[in-house]
Design a protein around this nucleic acid. Structure first.
Lengths: 265, 265
DNA sequence: AGCTTAGGTTCCAAATAATGAAACCGGGTT
DNA sequence: AACCCGGTTTCATTATTTGGAACCTAAGCT
């Protein structure tokens, strides 16, 4: 019945919940810390952790008595990354764009109506690490999100629109599918999408979709800044570079679009 | 009773095996393709896939009737990556070294006696994508592998030595724990490890370990080239740069090594 | 059409694995 | 010594998993 991200089916579900819990801590966790969440009985949690550790999904540091995400997961990570993400292909383009503009650049994909950030470059600073990438965000109130929604085929768009939360993060946030749809039409025309402080006050961005052969959105690219530093007009001036990079990425993605395995063991 | 295979404990184990199987395909997989592996009975595989899909670890494309790695996995993957892999921390250092030397550079970690490549930079070419990273290789016949083995504490070393396959990939490959152990002693002295065409004919490399506070191997760094372009002596000349970068990475890793949470939820 | 096959899906009783309260350890503290 | 705390193990009970076989379809073939 409960379809939300909870305790739905089976042992596997619970095990994965534990995995999530460990991941969520973002640092080595002690057994008791997880137990304190009160989500699992002692013995059950213990066995679950043991199983996951045996399986290499978790790593147990015997010295500290702590659990961390395991190397098997890292291995899966690479596979997941290179299979479901356009990031590896887009990387050089992102580098280039980032260097050219010297601003914060995001690369995102759409998944089940939500935005998944798959890569990022920070303004000049000596490359902050993975911050942001892997995070999931809303589609209806972000530049990249809207850029992708705008080019979704009708059936998928409807599903995606339904999946949005329409929470008023700021005064500018779209709070209904209707107002959003109106803007999407415009985005479809210009091929450009703006975040006008719709997600966070003071934060604005321009985004462009990365389109496949069939005009379907493969991903989106954005440049983010704050109202303190730039205006929307400033951002609009960056559009050509953005769109150029977007189409370059699209071009690199072409061959991959075909069903060509082409991989050795 | 069944303790032979080592894995396959419980339902979770099987589910994760299925996950691996899907990941291994490297492309959308049909139910029947997985079934054809003969590893699971029909109904069982079906339910496992369903569970994993419900859990978001797999994504099911209803049009094509295919399974792919799911969003939840991708999210976990990123966490795993940034938490248990030294790659994010080492990234800028790798960039620097790669630019300095203009050669192929590898970053690896040890996983159950095997080498896991976690990052890579290719010679000058505009950065070939993720090729290699995420791959697992042998420790006994690679530069990075030996570099890490050499600094393993005795007990772990014994376990790791046993885990090696000692397959004679080339004429230079170590084919026994004894000859390998002898070289490891030398590596421990010099802090430098060579691959003298032990894995692939014509391919040589220098590697240096990345050592933690306790002298334990956190990972290893290598520069690879071919005998057509360079000699071992050429590579030896790069040692200082290699080792400098290795210790720089080690230094960046330090704070993480200490049991300092110092982070809010 | 009729007949057959292949890819998926569902049933159900038996076999198995998960469960969790409670007991148990080992080592610090009071 | 008695007590607590974090972690580990036991064990009878319970619920889930299991997988052979039957069952759908939607193609393919004669």
């Amino acid at each position: 019945m409960n379809a939300s991200a909870g305790h739905s089916d089976g042992t596997v579900g619970k095990a994965l919940d534990v995995l999530d819990a460990v991941a969520l801590f973002g640092r080595p966790v002690r057994f008791s810390e997880l137990l304190a969440e009160g989500r699992w009985p002692k013995a059950t949690l213990y066995r679950l952790l043991q199983t996951l550790t045996n399986q290499g999904m978790l790593f147990f540091d015997a010295d500290m008595n702590t659990y961390t995400l395991g190397l098997r997961l890292v291995r899966l990570a690479h596979r997941a990354w290179s299979q479901t993400s356009i990031a590896p292909v887009a990387r050089p383009c992102l580098d280039q764009l980032s260097e050219l503009l010297g601003k914060t650049v995001h690369l995102a994909q759409l998944d089940h109506g939500q935005v998944l950030y798959v890569d990022k470059r920070n303004a000049h600073k000596p490359i902050e690490m993975f911050s942001g990438t892997g995070k999931v965000g809303p589609a209806y109130c972000t530049g990249v999100g809207k850029a992708m929604l705008a080019f979704l085929p009708e059936s998928e768009l409807q599903a995606a629109l339904k999946a949005q939360a329409y929470q008023p993060h700021t005064k500018a946030t779209h709070i209904s599918a209707e107002s959003l749809t109106a803007e999407l039409a415009e985005i479809r025309h210009t091929g450009l999408s703006f975040d006008r402080e719709e997600h966070e006050p003071g934060i604005i961005c321009v985004a462009a979709p990365i389109l496949g052969l069939a005009g379907d959105p493969l991903g989106a690219l954005s440049v983010t800044t704050s109202t303190l530093q730039h205006s929307l007009t400033d951002l609009e001036a960056l559009a050509p570079d953005l769109q150029h990079t977007a189409s370059e990425i699209a071009a690199r993605l072409q061959p991959w679009a075909n069903p060509i395995p082409a991989e050795e063991a």
